[in-house]
């Protein structure tokens, strides 16, 4: 990945935050910041690096290089893809695909549902708005894992077990995402909507043409919420979709921790692949993170 400035489309360029300062005074702290940022990023990623390296080395080395700590703790001596081989013998590809299908479906459906609801709660005026907002807030205060058992009974009564629908549904109506989007929509000047209404635009038009294009940062935030909920889902898939064809990635990885031994190599290999998908998505949307609102036309 190259630098942010190069990735940014020309229209997105914005003035430097500190244009008044002379160049020489600005250079030194920049280098300090780069070093600081690098150190922090390395610290955060170090445990993952170790897992990734352990995915690529013979299992014996994983623990024999632990102590005493040396360079070999973090670098592989011998490389092997055997761990990935065992992973795919257990049809991990299917599990990763399932997780991806469920998460992407949740993202798309969830964003649509949550954004429309948030728009209504932020912009429209109608009786009972406070009550509905309260319902949405309460819905994210309830620990999902704790209500999974009664929810499972409901889903089984509806014969939804072992379906993608059953895996997707609990993730789509996310109160926290609604809460986030509503907060953002409240910050959009109401005059914009009023003016558009005067010109005869319907509420759908206001939502679609004015609010959504202005809300990229909030939509990405809401997307993160929806994404993490499903990507981490473990207990619910175990309960509602236990068929081997429906296994999701976290469950498939856990299956390598058997009762008579744990295949750490395969577990780490699975973790690497599981982290890869969101990594690609993040890089895919990278430029939208770095784009400021000023360049998106609000101000």
């Amino acid at each position: 990945m190259s630098t942010q400035t190069q990735q940014r489309p020309p229209t997105g360029a914005r003035p430097e935050p500190e244009p008044a300062r002379p160049r020489s005074r600005r250079q030194r702290p920049r280098i300090g910041l780069i070093v600081l940022g690098t150190v922090i990023a390395v610290l955060f990623v170090l445990p993952l690096w170790w897992a990734a390296v352990s995915a690529l080395r013979p299992q014996r080395e994983t623990f024999s290089t632990l102590s005493p700590v040396s360079l070999w703790t973090l670098l592989p001596r011998g490389l092997t893809v055997g761990n990935f081989g065992r992973l795919f013998d257990a049809e991990f590809g299917r599990a990763l695909l399932n997780s991806t299908i469920v998460t992407v479906a949740t993202l798309v459906i969830g964003l649509a549902i949550c954004a429309t609801a948030a728009f209504a709660l932020a912009v429209l005026k109608f009786p009972g708005r406070g009550v509905i907002f309260a319902v949405m807030v309460i819905s994210f205060l309830i620990p999902f894992d704790a209500i999974a058992i009664p929810l499972m009974s409901i889903f089984r009564d509806a014969h939804l077990e072992n379906t993608y629908l059953a895996l997707v549904l609990p993730g789509v109506g996310n109160g926290l995402a609604v809460f986030l989007l509503r907060g953002f929509f409240l910050g959009v000047p109401i005059d914009l909507a009023e003016a558009a209404r005067v010109e005869g635009l319907g509420w759908w038009g206001v939502f679609w043409r004015i609010y959504l294009p202005l809300s990229r940062p909030a939509l990405i935030g809401a997307g993160l919420i929806l994404f993490v909920f499903q990507w981490q889902a473990y207990l619910w898939p175990l309960l509602i979709a236990p068929d081997p064809e429906m296994t999701v990635a976290p469950v498939a990885i856990a299956q390598f921790a058997g009762q008579q031994g744990v295949d750490f190599g395969a577990i780490f290999a699975g973790a690497v692949l599981t982290a890869l998908v969101p990594l690609l998505i993040l890089l895919f949307f990278q430029r939208y993170f770095t784009q400021s609102v000023s360049s998106s036309g609000l101000k």
Binding site: F44, Q232, A249, I253, A271, T274, V277, P278, L279
Partner: peptide, 9 residues
């Protein structure tokens, strides 16, 4: 990235 890998891992 840490939020993207399963909690069991």
């Amino acid at each position: 990235l840490p939020v993207a890998i399963p909690q069991s891992v």
